[in-house]
Design a protein around this nucleic acid. Sequence first.
DNA 1: ACAAAAGTGTTGAGAGTACACCCATGC
DNA 2: GCATGGGTGTACTCTCAACACTTTTGT
Lengths: 227, 227
Amino acid sequence: MANDRAFLESYDPADYDRPSVAVDVVLFTIREGTLQVLMTHRTEPPFAGCRALPGVFVGMDETLDEAASRALRTKGGLSHVYLEQLYTWGAPARDPRMRVISVSYYALVPERAAMLPEGTDAAFYPADSVAAAGDIAFDHAEIIACGRERIRTKVLWSDIAFSLLEEEFTLPQLQSVYEILLGQKLYKANFRKKLADRIEPTDKMTSGDAHRPSRIYRRRGDKEEKA
Amino acid sequence: MANDRAFLESYDPADYDRPSVAVDVVLFTIREGTLQVLMTHRTEPPFAGCRALPGVFVGMDETLDEAASRALRTKGGLSHVYLEQLYTWGAPARDPRMRVISVSYYALVPERAAMLPEGTDAAFYPADSVAAAGDIAFDHAEIIACGRERIRTKVLWSDIAFSLLEEEFTLPQLQSVYEILLGQKLYKANFRKKLADRIEPTDKMTSGDAHRPSRIYRRRGDKEEKA
DNA sequence: ACAAAAGTGTTGAGAGTACACCCATGC
DNA sequence: GCATGGGTGTACTCTCAACACTTTTGT
C-alpha cells in the first residue's frame, strides 16, 4: 500500500527502499558454425568462478539503450551492433546480495566484429551448452534461453539474420545462419526463392574454395534498418 | 565507469543513486464495440488533470508480476486476468520529479469482469482516441500505443482474443473481437474455418436476438493457458 | 413474405514443399 | 574424370481469400 501510485504526489525518494537497476546484454555471434554468447568470468562471490552476462548498472542520466551500449563497449569493445530489449527480470532473490532488477537486451554481431580486445576476461561460449552448464551466475542461463528463443522465432518473419553477417555475403553463408538460428536444415532451392526479394547480387564471386565459386550478394534496400 | 559491473563486488547501495522502479499496466477490454483502456485521473502535479495508467512502485519483496497484479487490484478491483510484460521504459526525464524506470505490462479482460468498484477515479477510454489526446501523463500514450501494437500482431498467431470474452461465447462475438483487435473486417466463412480447431460447440444457443440464434461455443482444451 | 443475421460448400490463386537436374571448380 | 558444393526449373500440396448459397429467427 505504501507503494501505491496514489501516494506518488508526496513521494520522497528517501522514504522508500529502492531496487538497483542493471542492464544485462546477451551478445550473440556465429563462430565455427555454432551460435555463441559473450560471457564474463566472475572472480568474486557470489557465483565466484561462474560465467555471467556482461552488464552495468543504469546511470542516472542515461537511457536503458545507452546503458546496454555501454555494457557492450566496456566489456567487449563493441559498438554499432543490432540491439533490442528482451525482457525485465525482477525476482526478489535473483541477486543474493540485494534487490537488483535486470533489464535484459540481446545483440547480434557478425563474427569479424566480435573480435575481443586484449586483456578482456570476456569470451564466447556455445549458446546451447549454457542451458546444461551449472556454472552460470544469477538467472543468466534463463536470460540466455529467453534470447535464444526470441531470435529463433524472430528470424522467421524479420531480417535479423543479416545482422550476423558482413555487408556482403554468399547465399550458402546466409542459409547457414538461418539453419543455425532455426536449428534445422533447409532446402536450398526453396530457401533461395523465399529470400530472393530481400537481396541483390553484386558482380563479385568467391574464389579459391576448392569448388564452384558462389556469387556475392548484399541486402536489398540496405538503407532501412528493418531487422 | 563507476557503474561498471566490474565494480559490483564492492558495491555498496549507499554509494550510488538508484532510480525508482514502477510498474504500469495497460488494461484492455472491449466495450460498446471498441477497444478501451483503463486510466486513472491525476489531481496533483505533475500532469494534474491528465489521465495516467494505473501503476505502483515495485515493493522490495515482490516480483514484477506481483506488482502488476497489485496495480490492477488496488486501482481497478480486478484479479485473475491475462497479464504479460510489455516493455521497460527508461528515458531519464520521463518523470520530471525524479528518475523512474517503468516496467509496463498489458492485461486483457472480458467486459463483465471489468466492472469497476464504486468510488474509483479510474475509468475506461477508447484506446484509439488516446494517441490523439493531449492530456496523457508521462509517456503513457506511447506505452498504450506499444500495447495496442502488441495485441494487434499477437492476435494473429496466439489465442489472446479468448481472454477478452467469457468462457462461453458465440462465433459472431469471437469474430467481432478479432475484427476490433485487427482493425479490419474479416470474411465470416474463412474466419470460422481457421478457428474451427480451437473451439468446441456446446449444446446451447442464444435466443431473443430478433434473428436466427447462434450456437454457443467454448475454447477447446481449456486446461492449457495457451494465450 | 420479408429482413437480417447465422451458418456452410466450392472454387481459384499463391505460397510452400519436395524433387530432379545442371554448372563450375580443384584435384 | 570425378567428387563436391553452387545454382536452377518444375510439379505437387495445402492454405487462404473470395464468392455463392442455405437456414432460422422476429415482425
